[in-house]
Structure formats: C-alpha cells, structure tokens
C-alpha cells in the first residue's frame, strides 16, 4: 500500500509548482491525485494547507472587514503586521462592526473591532 502523503507535503508540492508558474497544471495534478487516492473530501483542507504554505513563504491571502472602507495606509499596515512580501487582500465593509478592523489570514486573526470589545466587556463579570 502506498504511503499516505500528508496535506502539508501536498501543499508544499503545489506551492512549488505555483512558484514555477504552473498554477493551472498544479491544480489539475492535485485534483487528479485526490480523485486517485479517494481523498476528494479533503479538498477544502488541502486548500487551507496551500494557503498556510503560501503564508509561510511570505504570500498572504487576507480577508479584511471594517466598518468603513480602508485606505492605502491601512493596506500597508496590514502587510507590515503580517511581515508579508505579498498580500492578496479581499475587503468587506460591515457597518455592524461599529469601528476598527478585523483581519483574517491563514492561521492568524486580528480582531480590533469595537463590536468585539463591547461583546467582550459584556461577558466580563465585574
């Protein structure tokens, strides 16, 4: 029986291929491998592992939520905060956050919203 390859190793392989400029080919190979080894249910987790591996190599896929649209200064601050060489940022404006910003990166999170602080204060027993 062939040895089961961990998701982390698969992700490393895919990221290597992406680095070589073979994104589509890498995805095709990965899909074929998952079908062949009957691991298609792990597709979502493999995608997460790829995000983790990219982050480990300095490329972050980040989702930022804020009460108001963020400006270029904030985008630079996010890159510095994550110590990233490249950031793929998706932005969302959510007025219910009241103020501040929430950043979700692979394996990391920063919640500096006013909403969270109010909720946390609400939970604290005085």
């Amino acid at each position: 029986m062939a040895e089961r390859i961990s998701r982390r190793k698969l992700a490393g392989f895919v990221v290597d291929r992406i680095g070589e400029g073979n994104l589509n080919h890498a995805i095709e190979e990965l899909a074929a491998y998952l079908i062949d080894t009957k691991r298609t249910r792990e597709a979502g987790l493999v995608a997460r592992s790829i995000e983790d591996e990219l982050a480990a190599r300095g490329t972050f896929i980040v989702h930022a939520s804020s009460a108001r649209p963020i400006n270029e200064d904030v985008r630079d601050a996010i890159q510095r905060l994550l110590n990233a060489s490249k950031v793929h940022l998706t932005e969302e404006v959510d007025p219910t956050l009241i103020g501040g910003i929430r950043i979700e990166a692979p394996g990391k999170r920063l919640d500096a919203t006013v909403k969270r602080k109010i909720l946390a204060l609400n939970q604290v027993k005085m």
Partner: peptide, 19 residues
C-alpha cells in the same frame, strides 16, 4: 473596575494564532 477591564481588552488586541 470598568477602566481596568477596558485597558485589559485594549492590551488583548493582537495578532493571534487560530485554527
């Protein structure tokens, strides 16, 4: 007490590891 709790919440805001 309220000020202490707010200060604690402020200091808690940092990049945290999540899974």
């Amino acid at each position: 007490g309220l000020r202490d709790q707010i200060a604690k919440l402020e200091s808690n805001t940092s990049l945290e590891s999540v899974g």
